[in-house]
């Protein structure tokens, strides 16, 4: 079975739950008192997708302003970016839009973008309506989920969606030689921002 390394970065405001999402995905655990990330932290997880193994090399970046300038090191070469906001903080959704802009201007051309509205378990304190976020995500052809790292909602799902949107590489390395029917659906949905 072919193995592909896929670099994935997480971007977004400080405190929105980027590290918690990664911990839930990789370790299936949750710690409410996680320390702020310094620079970025790195984890991997390998999942099977159809007849390929996808090894996600996950760079979970620091949301703090002083590390802002380091972001290009992490989205450079990334196959996908998960941009996270906190549904209870309107401001974090505005920051997300800035990240989308930056990725458009400086990110890899075919990067798959996923938008995750985290902390959906706190819907009582919601500031960002789901529909607004979903409409925005659709307008930029991004994957969209509302997630909760705490309650393990839509965490694996966002990575599965990413796997689906990753362009197929022909095993022989000669693109266009074979054509797999099974992939057409995801091919047509593939978008770039």
């Amino acid at each position: 079975m072919a193995l592909r390394e896929l670099k994935v970065c997480l971007l977004g405001d400080t405190g929105v739950g980027k590290s918690s999402i990664v911990w839930r995905f990789v370790e299936d655990s949750f710690d409410p008192n996680i320390n702020p990330t310094i620079g970025a932290s790195f984890m991997t997880k390998t999942v099977q997708y159809q007849n390929e193994l996808h090894k996600f090399l996950i760079w979970d970046t620091a949301g703090q302003e002083r590390f802002r300038a380091l972001a290009p090191m992490y989205y450079r070469g990334s196959a996908a970016a998960i941009i996270v906001y906190d549904i209870t903080k309107e401001e974090s959704f505005q920051t997300l839009k800035n990240w989308v802009k930056e990725l458009r201007q400086h990110g890899p051309p075919n990067i798959v973008v996923a938008i995750a509205g985290n902390k959906c378990d706190l819907s009582d304190a919601r500031e960002v309506p789901e529909k607004d976020a979903k409409d925005y995500a659709d307008s930029i052809h991004a994957i969209f989920v509302e997630s909760s790292a705490k309650n393990a909602i839509n965490i694996n799902e966002v990575f599965i969606e990413i796997s689906k949107r990753i362009p197929v590489v022909d095993a022989a390395g000669t693109s266009g030689k074979g054509f797999k029917l099974g992939r057409q659906a995801s091919e047509s949905r593939r978008t770039c921002c």
């Binding site: 310094i38 002083r66 590390f67 300038a69």
Partner: peptide
């Protein structure tokens, strides 16, 4: 410096 901080942390 943030770069050194990040690198050392890695």
């Amino acid at each position: 410096e943030p770069c050194l901080e990040a690198a050392c942390n890695d």
